[in-house]
Amino acid sequence: MKKLALFSLIFSSYFSVFSQTEVTTSEIKNHIEFLISDKNQGRYPGGKANKRVVKYIKKEFKHVGLQAFNNNYKQVFKAKLRVEKGTDNAPEVNTSNVVGFIEGHDPLLKNEYIVLGAHYDHLGLGGPSSKSEKRGVVYHGADDNASGTAALLEIAEKLAANKDQLKRSVIFIAFGAEEQGLLGSKYFVENPLVPLSQIKLMINMDMVGRLNKNNHVYAGGAGTFNGGVEFMKVLGKSLGLNPIVHAGSVGGSDHVSFYKKNISVLGIHTGGHPQYHTPEDTLELINLEGEKLVCEYISQTILSKASTHNNIEFINQD
């Protein structure tokens, strides 16, 4: 009986550690299910639904052990919303970035930062950015970008459990109002919580939930830091991915705001699809195992770059 009790204790301890240090498809699915639920109304900036999503992300950041800057995970800003052509007086609403960090353990390198980001907002009930004629229905945005937000939360949990490996510090940002013109990331770089000169690399995840049968994952901007192209190719292939790595191709999402400030970037995604910006971008089409693999790709990238003394140098690709 004692042996059985001891075995149970060891097993439960192992499972507890595993659940904290490894990305799981069940947690990815749970995060996406919450984010795309009808009650969150397509995660449009402003209003109660936006506050509910921000509260959820903040709670998850706190739960996995991320620290807050100035005792506040929220970075509140005003977002001017896009409107249909011919409409005057675009409304302005309050929304938030959600920000947390893990401090590196090296006395010098902890003052250098790697940023991991993903936008959590989507199109609400339709609007000027929609690719569908439907209005008044929920644009779920399971891939765009509940997938990236779920990956952000899962990678944060994994890296927090492995923080002893981090020499550099890692900042995690869930951006608001990306769909309104990269507003959350623009606000962050204009109102940074650390000096921009100390941010050495920004990795952005936007639509990472639709890994195809060829295991294609796209990495844009890998040439903006020294050795980046070869590093991303070799790492991806070692994980069974077929990475399509571009030295440039910096565009289309929140990493652009950082690149414009001369910060090295990576934009990670798994490709476009017909459901982009339509109500049909739903959970059933997410490749959960594929997203888990993409999370591993990004986690190992951060662990490698945050655990080395080697400099990360910005290279302009314009």
Rank of each mutant, 00 (worst) to 15 (best):
L235C: 02
I286H: 07
N212V: 06
F61C: 03
Q20M: 14
L81Q: 03
K29Q: 14
H309F: 15
D144K: 13
N97W: 08
I36P: 05
F225C: 01
D121H: 08
Q275P: 00
N287K: 00
P128C: 02
L109V: 06
I302P: 00
P128N: 01
Q275T: 10
G209Q: 05
E179Y: 04
Q275G: 00
K51W: 12
Q20L: 14
L266F: 06
P107N: 10
L109M: 11
F15Q: 12
G220E: 08
N111S: 15
G228N: 07
P107R: 05
V138E: 13
E296S: 05
I244V: 13
L183Y: 02
A151L: 05
N226A: 00
Q180N: 02
N242T: 13
E280D: 15
V17L: 13
G141P: 02
S8V: 12
G267D: 15
A222T: 01
H119M: 14
R82W: 10
R43K: 09
V137H: 06
V245W: 07
T278D: 10
N89L: 01
Q75G: 10
Q67A: 04
I203A: 00
N162S: 13
E230G: 01
G148R: 09
E178N: 09
G181T: 08
R135T: 05
K62Y: 14
A90T: 07
D144L: 14
L183S: 00
S8D: 08
E289D: 05
L266K: 04
K167T: 08
N72G: 02
G221R: 12
V265D: 11
V99C: 04
K292C: 02
M205R: 10
E33N: 15
Y120C: 14
L182Y: 10
L239P: 12
A151T: 02
Q165W: 07
G46E: 12
E154S: 09
I244D: 10
S8K: 14
R43F: 12
G127D: 01
Q41V: 07
D254N: 11
V208K: 05
I102C: 14
G148A: 05
H122F: 06
L235W: 07
L196C: 06
H140W: 01
Y120N: 12
G240Q: 06
K292Q: 10
H277R: 11
N97V: 10
S130L: 01
S249N: 11
G46T: 11
I102V: 11
K200T: 03
F314E: 03
I263T: 10
M205A: 13
Y259H: 14
E157I: 00
L293K: 14
V245R: 09
N30L: 10
T301M: 15
V64H: 02
G240D: 09
K200D: 04
M1H: 04
K62H: 15
V294R: 12
A174T: 11
L235I: 03
K237E: 15
V93Q: 06
S12Q: 09
N30S: 15
Q300L: 15
A68V: 09
A5Y: 06
